[in-house]
Every structure is written in C-alpha cells, then in structure tokens.
C-alpha cells in the first residue's frame, strides 16, 4: 500500500511546526493546507502579495482581485496582509518564510532540485518564483511521486534536467517513502505502510542509506 497524494501531503504537514510561515507550490503541495495537524496554525504566503491566505471561497464570495500565485480565488484568514511583489520576494529571499513545499521533476542526492523545465527545445521557458523560493526559504520540502509516469526514478545521483537550485532540498515525501537529504546523501526516514525498504531502494537511482 503506497501513500495517496492526500496522505503524502498529510505526512509532510506533520513535519511543519505550529506558527510556521509557509509557502505551498501549485498542485499537490497545495493539499498540505487540508491536513494541518490538530492544534497547529500555519500562516500561508502567496508570492503575488498576500500573507494569511485562506481556502478557496464559495462561488458567490469570490473576488477576481483576491487570488493566489496559481491565479485561483482564495480567501483571507484573520491577520492577513497585502504587499507588493518586491516585499513579497524580500520575505522569500530574505529568509523570513520558514517552509516551502514544492513539486519536483528530479531531486539529486546532494539536494539539487530540477522542477521548472525539461529543457526540451520547443518548450517555452517559464520559471515563476521557483528559483527565488528555493534560494531563500529556510526549509524546502518536496512532495512528489517516487517515479515518473514511465517508472523513471525522480530521486537521482545527478539531475539531468535544468536546475532550479543547488543543494536546497531537505526532505522528500513520495508515495513510497519519506527521504531526508543529508550531507552524505539520501536517507530513508520512513516507508509507506506495506512498502519494503528494498522496493524504495530499487526505485531510487542513488544510494539510499
């Protein structure tokens, strides 16, 4: 039994402490907000100038001027604030955001991350705020499937896709396991129920201690 995307997000949420300022990437990482452990409060940051972001509101309460970095309608939690883009990225780059949860194409054993471009010739390059987030947020977590749709490992010795940042990833939450990135490489922290460590190692293209 591997973890579902919801369970992966819930597992990542367990490793974020009460009171943390958190930025969630678009897609699977956004689900972390649905699984905040009992008794904890996170303050969510959105790159487009919002702290204290709340969940998607009912259709009738949406305002097209109140959106998140994924351009979806959101709401405001008590204590929210607005600010311009340079202040927003000062929060990111200046080390004021505690945790960022992102998706990944590849993570290398030294913590290098590739998650913005496949480098394909006809691809239109688009980076958004990913490089700023990994360069500035104190702790970077990755939520991703352990392998690609074609079964290729995403945890690798060296990234082959263009990099987003060097040595930035601290932990990876996959459908099979939780993997820490330590100074000497990947370390298996925990496996999903019924998943053997050997299976995780087989699907990891780098040594897994």
């Amino acid at each position: 039994m591997s973890w579902t995307p919801d369970e992966m997000a819930a597992r990542a949420a367990l490793d974020i402490p009460n009171g943390a300022y958190v930025n969630l990437g678009i897609g699977m990482p956004e689900r972390v907000a649905d699984f905040v452990p009992e008794g904890r409060t996170f303050v969510y940051h959105s790159e487009n100038g919002l702290l204290g972001m709340g969940p998607e509101p009912a259709e009738t309460e949406r305002d097209p001027d109140l959106i998140n970095a994924g351009k979806k309608p959101v709401s405001l939690n008590p204590g929210a604030s607005f600010f311009h883009h340079a202040d927003s990225f000062a929060m990111i780059r200046g080390g004021h955001i505690d945790y960022c949860v992102l998706g990944a194409m590849q993570v290398a054993q030294n913590g290098d991350l590739a998650n913005w471009s496949t480098g394909a010739e006809d691809a239109i390059p688009a980076v958004g705020g990913a490089m700023d987030l990994v360069a500035g947020v104190k702790t970077i977590y990755i939520v991703t499937r352990h392998t690609t749709k074609d079964g290729e490992p995403k945890l690798v010795e060296t990234c082959t896709y263009p990099l987003t940042g060097l040595g930035v990833v601290k932990r990876i939450y996959t459908d099979l396991a939780v993997v820490a990135v330590l100074e000497n490489g990947f370390k298996l922290v925990e496996t999903a129920p019924g998943v053997a460590a050997d299976e995780v190692r087989k699907k990891t293209a780098a040594p897994l201690a």
Binding site: H84, A86, F89, G129
Partner: peptide
C-alpha cells in the same frame, strides 16, 4: 525569476543600477 523581476524594477525605481541575489 519572479523575485528577480520584482527586485530589478524596485532597484530601477530606487536608483540602484545592479544588485547581487542568490536566486538562479
């Protein structure tokens, strides 16, 4: 990068011709 774009605009407005960033 989005934050570099923002800071390049801010720098222009603040009269700072260049800056160093960890991004990228």
């Amino acid at each position: 990068p989005q934050g570099t774009l923002a800071e390049r605009l801010r720098a222009a407005g603040a009269g700072i011709p260049a800056f160093y960033t960890p991004t990228s």
